[in-house]
Each structure stands twice: as C-alpha cells, then as structure tokens.
Computed example of a mutant assay.
Amino acid sequence: MKLETVQEDETLVISVDETRIDAAVAIQFKDRMRELTSGGTGRVILDLGKVDFVDSSGLGAIVAAMKQLNGGQNIALCGLQPMVDRVFRLTRMNTIFAIHDDLPAARAAAAG
C-alpha cells in the first residue's frame, strides 16, 4: 500500500498512491495509516484523488483509520473520484467525514 505523506504545520497530508482500496489491501491500508498517524496531533487530510474504487472493506479501513486517531486529531477527505464519492454518499459516510473537492480546499478548511 503506497501512501505518501507531507507535514504542513499542524496538518498531515496523506496521499493514497493506489487506484483501489479494497479487501486485498484494506488491512495494509489500516496498518499503514496507524503507523503514519500514531502519536500525532492536529488534522489529517486523506487525499483519495488517485483512488477510483473503494469496496466495503476499503470503506471499513478508512473508518477504522479515523477511529484509531488520537483524541486531538481529526480526519478530512479530499479528491474523491465519482465512484468513490458515490460509495460515501450511499453509505452516508459523507455525514461522518468532512469531504472537500480537492487538496487546496481541504488545506483552506484546515487553516481557517
């Protein structure tokens, strides 16, 4: 599971460099997210711009990544492709996560 990170002040940007988050990689994704966010503070932005498919296992892994954050951390999503956005809306996860159109919009929300 390829995840790239950039620390920007109090915000950790994690970009998923894969086209799918599904049952085949869900556990790897969850474990890698735990490694990257463990002990952190502040906001986490998960950039899903390259991901064009998420199944129920992938969705569960993203939710698990949110739940394993420290008390002072929160997570926002950005760059959802149409099919991924549809999964989040159909499952009403768009009411749980802050979702932004793109990384600049997510950064702006984090700053303000």
Rank of each mutant, 00 (worst) to 15 (best):
G71H: 12
M66F: 15
Q81P: 00
T19R: 12
G58E: 00
K50F: 04
F29E: 11
T95F: 11
V87D: 05
Q68G: 15
D22K: 01
K30F: 05
L48R: 02
G42R: 00
D31S: 13
K50S: 15
F29D: 10
V63Q: 06
L90Q: 09
L90I: 08
S57I: 05
N70H: 14
R92Y: 04
L46V: 13
L12R: 03
G58S: 06
M33Y: 15
V25P: 00
I45Q: 00
M93S: 06
G58W: 01
I62V: 15
F88E: 01
A26K: 04
I62D: 02
A65G: 06
V84M: 01
L80W: 02
A24L: 12
L3W: 13
N74P: 00
C78A: 08
D9G: 08
R34Q: 09
A76K: 01
A111V: 05
A64I: 06
M93G: 01
G79A: 01
R32W: 09
V84E: 02
G39R: 13
V84W: 00
T5F: 07
L77W: 00
G58P: 05
R32F: 10
R32V: 05
A23W: 10
R43L: 10
Q68A: 10
A106C: 13
A109C: 10
K50W: 02
Q28T: 15
F53A: 10
S57H: 04
E8T: 11
R20Q: 11
N74A: 13
D55L: 06
A105D: 15
K2L: 14
M93I: 03
S56I: 14
D85Y: 06
A105N: 11
K67M: 11
T11C: 13
G40Y: 02
L69G: 01
V84S: 02
V63D: 05
F53M: 11
V16H: 02
M1Q: 09
K67C: 05
D52K: 00
T95P: 01
E8A: 11
E35F: 07
I75Q: 06
H100V: 03
G39H: 12
L59N: 04
T19P: 04
C78N: 03
N70I: 06
D101A: 13
M83F: 07
I62A: 01
T5E: 14
D55Q: 08
P82Y: 02
I21S: 01
I45E: 04
F29P: 05
